[in-house]
């Protein structure tokens, strides 16, 4: 830190001595050239395609302005797809959020053996990134029709089929839980670590039990973060495609959009644009809620 202060002071003397300002001003004018390649790349591969689909959601094939594309996503089968997407994302976010919070809290308890923390953290890092095709088939091998656990339960006298299926709300949310739950553990750990140790000690000195601490201090402070991260998990599940595709779920928004694309062709592009736009709207709403909750929680947490 001292070094940077010296550097700052050096700057100031340079400015006072009048040797650098002109050069610096000239540098600043041309400095933006250094980021042109990056912004050009982002424009071509992210901004322009996004702009194109947003414009496409509001124009006819001939280029005239219209609301009829947007109106079409309120007709079957799309509302049902949006509904199932929201239900599945919300359920997996709720489960994942609560369990992730409880496990993060347990992992951080200083009484647990020393190996627990690195074991759970590194495994969580792996599982949170283990979404997609292999995850879907891992659960087929576990809870599918001929899955290892399905057959084990059958031997024990519990026949989960046909009432259970990996394509239903319960089954699919269990699969999603495999990446939501560890993600929540990783995201929740810094939040719980941010709870000041002094509060815990003060509460304990005043005779509070661990339960009392959480009820009156911990939970009220942590709740905005907890809700914010659950909203984030919702967005994470909402945009999942590969896992659902491999499970064979068809009534999800992402799968419906995928059906319009084959190679470099987009069939019925107007509907695809409108659905994609609908997804963007929902994700933007989740990010706004997340940001508001995050702002609220940063008041108390370190």
């Amino acid at each position: 830190m001292a070094l940077s202060e010296i550097a700052e002071a050096g700057h100031r003397t340079d400015v006072l001595a009048g040797t650098k300002p002109r050069k610096q001003a000239r540098n600043r004018r041309w400095a933006f050239l250094g980021v042109v390649p990056f912004f050009a790349y982002i424009a071509v591969f992210l901004l322009i395609p996004t702009g194109k689909l947003i414009v496409g959601a509001f124009t006819t094939t001939t280029g005239a302005f219209t609301f009829s594309n947007i109106a079409s996503i309120f007709h079957a089968p799309y509302p049902a797809a949006f509904e199932f997407s929201v239900e599945l994302s919300a359920l997996s976010a709720l489960w994942g959020g609560i369990m992730g919070f409880l496990v993060a809290n347990a992992v951080l308890h200083h009484g647990v053996p020393r190996w627990v923390r690195p074991a759970y953290l590194s495994f969580s890092g792996m599982a949170a990134n283990f979404a997609g095709i292999p995850l879907a088939f891992a659960f087929t091998a576990t809870l599918g029709n001929l899955g290892v656990v399905t057959i084990l339960l059958k031997h024990l006298g519990f026949n989960i089929y046909p009432s259970f299926s990996l394509q239903g709300l319960l089954g699919a949310s269990l699969v999603y839980l495999f990446f939501q739950f560890p993600l929540m553990i990783l995201l929740m750990i810094p939040v719980i670590e941010g709870l000041r140790k002094e509060w815990r000690e003060a509460a304990s000195n005043l005779g509070a039990t661990s339960f009392g601490f959480w009820r009156h201090i911990g939970l009220p402070v942590v709740t905005p973060s907890l809700l914010g991260l659950m909203v984030l998990l919702f967005g994470n599940a909402f945009s999942a495609y590969a896992t659902a595709y491999a499970l064979g779920i068809s009534n999800l928004v992402t799968i419906q959009i995928g059906q319009f694309i084959n190679g470099n062709n987009v069939f019925a592009p107007q509907d695809a644009y409108a659905l994609a736009f609908g997804m963007i709207v929902i994700i933007v709403i989740t990010i706004i809620i997340y940001t508001l909750l995050q702002r609220r929680s940063s008041r108390w947490l370190k």
């Binding site: 322009i48 495609y241 992402t254 470099n264 963007i280």
Partner: peptide, 16 residues
């Protein structure tokens, strides 16, 4: 932005 525009959404605009 890459979270706002997930792969399945981006590809709708990018493929054409």
């Amino acid at each position: 932005l890459p979270f706002v525009v997930p792969p399945i959404v981006l590809i709708v605009g990018l493929a054409p």
